[in-house]
Design a protein around this nucleic acid. Structure first.
Lengths: 167, 167
DNA sequence: TTGGAATGTCAACAAGGCTGACATAAAATG
DNA sequence: CATTTTATGTCAGCCTTGTTGACATTCCAA
């Protein structure tokens, strides 16, 4: 049942994967993603926010001053959908929107101190779970995990992801 | 930047993971999950269905005759939410619901041939992407990927997942 | 300078979560 | 055996967050 316990041993170029093993991988992704979002969701609920707010706050934190257009490209939603979320975050004083100086059509987004506080709380619990998972899976598992995830991304998403990493 | 290029080499019991490395793992999960669902979503859209329909069809396929109650425990949604999805699938002739013979309160769920056809189409594209990702990441990566995912699940979800695997 | 493209906002709608109310059937209790 | 309690599933209505359409503002290029 181990994906590498195949006719060809680990380290070979070819993998022998049954449909059943792939099906298990699919279900593992589903269940793991649920666990991955469970802890932040609890905190968000206390504040009356949803996962959409988390995503916005997360990426604004990682790229302060980014524009609405940049953000919606990364998040993969429409600007109208993002706008509703941003409006509530701005009203609640977690995000500030500044008119661009070079191009006054653009709005540059920043987290306020309150916004940074929430972002930190959300990140802490998610990092905690990921650290625990890494520790439980062992050091050898971590790089494999990351390599598979990156290979599973759409090319344009991988590009966005890599860009975020190098900044 | 490699998560295992830490003061302690691979194979040790302790991991040295910076907050930044964990943050990258979080974003990798986000982008990878998007890629993971992208292909089925296209097919579903052609049929006027959403991800909720995919989940239902997937798990009914894996456990034919399962009850509504079983299904909503696995999916982690309310019965009311699941019911709406099931109703459309039944109306469209993809799922059949049979009153239980032992306990007539229960409804046992089965895929029709049409339902099996759609499930197969969805699974094929998702298996295709996962196979490609495994191949690209290499054989050593696969078991690590799976171990981290399983460690990231909530315990009760891990139990549900393991139960599905052994059946 | 003027027409088109880019950016962001407002309005209205759809999918899929949620709670509440309820019908039916089984089980427990008197 | 009758009646209350519990379990399962369905119907109705609400909220979040996705969608498209219409539009104001600003920039840029013809």
């Amino acid at each position: 049942m181990n994906p590498t316990s195949s006719p060809r041993a680990s380290g070979e170029t070819l993998l022998f994967l049954t449909d059943e093993q792939l099906r298990q991988g699919i279900e593992a992704m589903f269940f793991a993603y649920r666990g991955f979002t469970a802890d932040p969701d609890k905190i968000l609920e206390e504040h009356g926010y949803g996962r959409a707010h988390h995503r916005a706050v997360h990426f604004i934190n990682g790229a302060p001053g980014t524009t609405v257009n940049n953000l919606l490209n990364i998040l993969g939603v429409t600007k109208q959908s993002l706008n509703r979320v941003l409006r509530t975050l701005i009203e609640d004083g977690l995000v500030e929107s500044h008119v661009g100086q070079k191009d006054r059509r653009e709005r540059h987004l920043f987290l306020t101190e309150t916004g940074k506080d929430l972002e930190a709380k959300l990140t802490v619990v998610q990092q905690h779970r990921m650290r625990a998972a890494y520790r439980q899976a062992g050091p050898d598992a971590v790089s494999g995990f990351r390599r598979v995830l990156e290979a599973m991304m759409d090319p344009e998403l991988l590009q966005a992801y890599s860009k975020l990493r190098q900044d």
